[in-house]
Design a protein around this nucleic acid. Structure first.
Lengths: 200, 200
DNA sequence: ACCCGCATGTAAGTCGTTACATGATTCT
DNA sequence: AGAATCATGTAACGACTTACATGCGGGT
């Protein structure tokens, strides 16, 4: 089984969905840490069905095309439960911007400062969106959000990862941009002053 | 040109290296945000040479097999400089552990708490290693580290991203594990108490 | 008439991992 | 003699992206 397969099972464990629905989910909430296009999802659903992890039933609609609604099977649920607590194989995260940072000494300071400034904004925007969702979750589902056996807790936990990630990313971009623009104290200077610090 | 191509050019911009050397670099410092095996590197070097971005010369060694040492060309350096300040195409980060967190409501609390506890340690270990490197860099290359046109600054910047990333990751793992073990206040409780807070 | 959203698929191509394959030299 | 490090490649496979392909129904 592939990770994508478990991602799909994880969604179907909460509710029955069509391939199209799954594609939408992969662009939204879940897509923030695992995304996939429909061209990957449809074949994967076939494989999952062949393995007995899901079943589908055709649902007719009057004002829209028919759809295949997929449900998770007992076997699928068992496989998913086992997978959840197994340690993931550690994979080095790939980040193109960090790679660019690694080469930034070659570049024009103005252009590179602008780049990191823009990225800072992008991640602060995403952070703001996440925070809004968190507020909403805490308001609408305050009780479920703290119960580890609730799907709301799980979604809340994933959301918190997003918040921490984006906060850290924005902070780093800001530091890089500030450094290029010469707005920060050097570590050696800091040691001598021991005053209030601007950087993390 | 692929991102891997630029990663290689980025390394060659600092010093001439063989395919083998590049492979070692991709496991070490650079490998923390962009990794590749030798089976990817050798063909990519051929492509870079075909495109006129690098050249190689065979260097004979007495106590070891001969090697091909690659140098970046003017053309390669220009391409690299252009690439550095171009905004990267935003790609959703893929994280299997977050996906597992999203399904954690199905799992046995003891097992899942253990999983997140272990991951917390892994990331704290990595964080400690990064911090040690940072200390060393600040001590040995304190002057270069603050100059945006120095390769040391670039390496230092990449390192700082690693530190922020691992710190955030460990913090999140700790929060998830604590939550599963019921060690934390809920957001609703927090609102009523307004006392000292345990969570971020 | 045309575009958009719903709905489902296939095909081609790229990127990356794992495995296969070879050969020199040094250390134990 | 065998293992480890240095050194360079190819082949097979799997995962992911982008493009191709089709069809209905509703809105402008």
């Amino acid at each position: 089984m592939t990770t994508l397969g478990y991602a799909i099972l994880g969604l179907l464990a909460q509710e029955a969905l069509s391939g199209y629905d799954l594609t939408q989910r992969m662009k939204g909430r879940v897509g923030n840490f695992w995304s996939a296009g429909h061209s990957q999802i449809y074949p994967e659903l076939s494989r999952l069905e062949a393995g007995g992890h899901v079943t589908h039933s055709v649902v007719a609609q009057q004002d829209r095309p028919d759809k295949k609604v997929y449900e998770i099977t007992t076997r699928g649920l068992e496989a998913l439960k086992e997978w959840v607590t197994e340690p993931p194989t550690p994979r080095a995260p790939r980040d193109e911007l960090v790679l660019k940072a690694y080469c930034v000494w070659l570049a024009d300071p103005e252009k590179s400062a602008r780049l990191f400034r823009e990225e800072e904004l992008r991640h602060e925007d995403q952070l703001a969106r996440y925070k809004k969702t968190r507020k909403w979750m805490e308001g609408e589902h305050g009780e479920e959000v703290v119960r580890p056996d609730s799907p709301w807790f799980a979604g809340y936990a994933a959301l918190r990862r997003g918040i921490i990630y984006e906060r850290g990313y924005a902070e780093w971009c800001r530091w890089v941009a500030d450094s290029i623009e010469g707005k920060l104290d050097s570590p050696t200077k800091r040691e001598k002053k021991k005053g209030k610090k601007k950087s993390a």
